[in-house]
Design a protein around this nucleic acid. Structure first.
Lengths: 108, 108
DNA sequence: CCCCCTATGTAGAGTTCCGATACAGTACTA
DNA sequence: TAGTACTGTATCGGAACTCTACATAGGGGG
C-alpha cells in the first residue's frame, strides 16, 4: 500500500456505482498518467480491480474508447480496510475553539 | 509524503511531550531500522525534526546513548496537515447496525 | 566463544513514482 | 500532407523510496 494506491482506491470507493476510466481517475486523484496506470495494472494483478473496454464507435463518439475500471468484491473489502488503517494514523481532530487550523492541501 | 513517513509523524505527534528515540520509534511504528533512520534524516533535512544526543554515561546507564528526536514548530504544523490529508482519503466510517466490518490490521 | 540485547546507522537490491513520451483516432487549418 | 490541437490509454527510464541484511559498539548469559 502506497499513497497513490490509496488515492485510487479512495476515488473508486467514493462512488462504487460510477463508471470510472483513466482520465477521470487522473482528475479525481490528481495523479499523473505515469503513476495512475501502473497502479491500475497492479490492482488488476492483485484481483482487486476489473477493466473493460467501452463498447462504442470512436468515430461516432468523436473520442477514443474508454477503459472502465471497477473494484471486485474482494477489492472493495480490501480497500475499505486499507483506508481505515491510513485513517488510524491521524489522531482524532476534535474541533478547537478559535484555532486557526491550516486546512489547505499540503504541498506533497 | 509516504506511509512510513506518515507513521513516524503520527508517532511523534501522538504525544508531543514524550522524548522519542530511534528504537522507541521502531517499536511504535513497526518500521525496521533501515527504513526509520533514512526517514528521520530526511525529516531533519526538511527542518521538521531536531535531534540531540542524550547526555548520559553509557557505562553508568548500562546502555548506549540515545538520540532524541522532536518535531519543530514547522514540523508539528506540517505533520498535522499531512495526516489530515491522509485521513480525508477514507470515507467517514459511520457506525453500522449489525455490520461485520473487518477491523483487523491489513497485511500490507 | 557465541549468541542475544540495547542502540544507531549503512549498503545494496528491489519496488514505486512520475515527467516525458508514444500511440491512435478525430478535427480543424492550410 | 502537413501541422496543431484534442481525447484517451499506455509505456519508458531515471530518481526516489523501502527494507533485508549487515556493521558498529558496549554489556550480559550460557
Amino acid at each position: 500500500m502506497t499513497i497513490p494506491v490509496a488515492k485510487v482506491l479512495s476515488a473508486l470507493l467514493a462512488d462504487p456505482a460510477a463508471e470510472r476510466y483513466g482520465l477521470d481517475l487522473m482528475k479525481l486523484t490528481g495523479l499523473p498518467s505515469g503513476t495512475l496506470y501502473p497502479v491500475l495494472h497492479r490492482l488488476q494483478a492483485a484481483g482487486w480491480l476489473l477493466a473493460d473496454w467501452e463498447e462504442v464507435d470512436p468515430a461516432a463518439a468523436g473520442r477514443p474508447a474508454r477503459r472502465y475500471y471497477r473494484l471486485t468484491a474482494e477489492g472493495v473489502g480490501a480497500a475499505r480496510q486499507a483506508l481505515a488503517e491510513l485513517r488510524a494514523l491521524s489522531p482524532d481532530p476534535r474541533p478547537r475553539r478559535g484555532g486557526a487550523e491550516p486546512t489547505g492541501a499540503p504541498a506533497w
